[in-house]
Amino acid sequence: MTLLHIDNLRVGPGRSAPIVEELTLTVERGETVGLVGESGCGKSLTALSIMGLLPENLRVRQGRILLEGQEIQSLPQRKLRHLRGEKMGMIFQEPLTALNPVMTVGSQITEVLRTHRGLSANAARARALELLTLVKIPDAEARLNDYPHQMSGGMRQRVVIAIALACSPSLLIADEPTTALDVTVQAQILRLLKQLQQEENLGLLFITHDLGVVRQVADRIVVMYAGSVVEEGRVDAVLDAPRHPYTAGLIAARPQGSFAAGAPRLADIAGSVPAPEARPDGCVFRARCPRAQSRCEAERPALVRAPTGRATRCHFPLTEGVPA
């Protein structure tokens, strides 16, 4: 059974101007799916929808979210609360705000175990120690008594990961988990996440704006633009030969080489992402797209899926880098 199946999801403040629309996404056990896109594309709201943590003014307006076959988008908070932690855990971008500054690291981990598992204080502490060792925090026993501010950014993110994994969930959602970290610490955390994912056979939904990070961690990639999926496929296939002009633009916009040593000007994407209430008719990317034609204005392209699992939402996709 598919671990996570999101089917035609629509999230927004009301009937009009949805922030996320027509979103279909699956994550299998043992698989890492990289969800990428620029700010405002709806990738974080997708994560919050799954966790049932949407802000009060936003709701799932349409579609279903299935976790191990069970519909969860309309569950009451009491039942969702049980699923969060037990079946799905989440890691956030900024570990300092994700942790409680006035509780020790140890008590933040044992709190989860005592609430969800009903463990005794001693048993919870023993398991907390196990978890800190699992996320490779040196001198774990002493660190249980530390407060978050006494730890470095990388160590704090390890604690957040330990809390997310406390009840052995099957799905882990990581929302920009390394964006706030230095590049050397990012490499440590990425390696840790990959290793834990394999050991625990986790389904991992990894949200990031960094294509380099996706290449390192993901099996499949899902590219979002202005609330919709525009391209999806095996990570190597998509990044080596993008079909959607937006994916191609994202890859080309990253600096390569040195300008002083002869590297070309950067291929920027003109304009910026439209706000949800200002999205154009037809293809949402057409105003910024170098390949747009009149059909792109008249008709919103559907996400066309090939038998290989490769999917593209474009009337005039690129084929092997050559115009079709």
Binding site: V183, T184, Q186, A187, Q188, L190, R191, D210, L211, G212, V213, R215, Q216, L239, I251, R254
Partner: peptide, 16 residues
Amino acid sequence: AIPDEAARQDDAPILE
């Protein structure tokens, strides 16, 4: 430590 956009680097040494 920079994540390479062009290739996977599973065995690169990591600064601890």
